[in-house]
Simulated scan of single mutants.
Amino acid sequence: MTANPRRQLRPTDVKRLNRTWRRNTEGRLALIVESVTGPFNIGSIFRTAAAFGVERIWLSGNATPPTNPKAQKTALGTDRLVAWEGPLSAVEAVRAAKEDGFTVVAVELTGDAAPLHEAKLGGDLCLVVGSEDHGCSPALLEAADGVCYIPQVGRVGSFNVAVATAIALAEARRREWSGKEPPAGE
């Protein structure tokens, strides 16, 4: 009799699966989070960043730090798994990312933004997300190497910033992993 393949994985199996995906991941990811003030958004962004292997987050503007107690509730301790610094100005954060070898791409609705699925997301990539109300500042958009947006077909004008971050990070990793063999057991 064979084991049911649809059973939930045990913690040891999950660790083994994640380790295999890590071995198949070469690209570096980073984030600039500009003026995101909602602590639950910050906590979600840090948790998602840790899950996708983001190596550094630069907090810009008046972004809430992950040490905020409400952010901690959502982050569940994952902020200790991702290096972060800030607050920095938007231009300082972009400069730091570029000096560290990252291409900086903002996730924002602008006239020249490429749809996320067509955007250049290869190599060492630093994605930028902006405040819940106003998005990325003009100074940050000017300093970025490129801009992309997440296409939508519904009647809502935008995503929550934490959700948009998760979608963009997932797309960057999906692109890297596409064409590679899935980990054993998939």
Rank of each mutant, 00 (worst) to 15 (best):
K120M: 04
K98I: 01
I150H: 05
G154M: 00
D13I: 00
A83G: 13
V104I: 00
L31T: 03
P69M: 02
T12M: 11
R10M: 05
L81R: 01
A106Q: 07
L109G: 07
V161W: 00
L141A: 07
K73Q: 12
T25P: 01
N160V: 02
V91A: 08
A114T: 11
E118K: 12
E181Y: 13
G53H: 15
A71D: 01
A93R: 08
P182S: 07
T165H: 08
R175I: 00
R56Y: 12
R155H: 13
P183W: 03
Q152D: 10
I45Y: 04
R7H: 11
A119N: 06
L59S: 04
L59N: 07
G130P: 01
N62L: 13
R19D: 14
E55Y: 03
F46S: 00
A49W: 02
V161Y: 04
I167E: 06
Q8W: 02
E26C: 10
N4D: 10
L121F: 00
V153Y: 15
A119G: 02
T20N: 14
D124L: 05
P115K: 08
S137I: 04
G135N: 11
L76H: 10
N4T: 01
A83H: 12
N62C: 12
A3N: 11
E99L: 12
E132H: 05
E142L: 12
Q8F: 01
R19K: 15
P138A: 12
Q152H: 09
L29R: 07
E34T: 06
E142S: 11
W177P: 06
E26R: 14
R10C: 05
W58H: 08
V94A: 07
E34S: 09
S137D: 05
E186Q: 15
N62Q: 14
D13K: 01
H117T: 10
V156H: 14
Q8R: 11
L140V: 04
R23C: 12
A49M: 07
F159W: 14
L76D: 10
G122W: 00
G154S: 07
S137P: 09
R95P: 03
G179A: 07
T12P: 08
W177Q: 09
V153L: 15
L125N: 06
E85W: 07
G179N: 07
T12V: 12
E118C: 05
F40D: 06
I45N: 10
V33M: 01
D145C: 02
V156W: 11
G53W: 14
F102W: 09
N160T: 10
Q152C: 09
V54W: 08
P65V: 09
R22D: 15
V104H: 03
P39Q: 07
E176K: 00
E132L: 06
V129D: 03
T74F: 09
R47A: 07
A51G: 14
T165Q: 03
A96S: 15
G179V: 01
E186A: 15
P5D: 05
I167A: 04
E99Y: 08
G123V: 01
V128A: 09
V107H: 05
C148T: 03
P182G: 10
C148G: 06
A63I: 06
G185E: 06
A63P: 11
A30Q: 09
P39E: 10
A114Q: 13
L116Q: 04
H117D: 13
V156M: 14
M1H: 15
R16A: 12
W177H: 07
F52M: 13
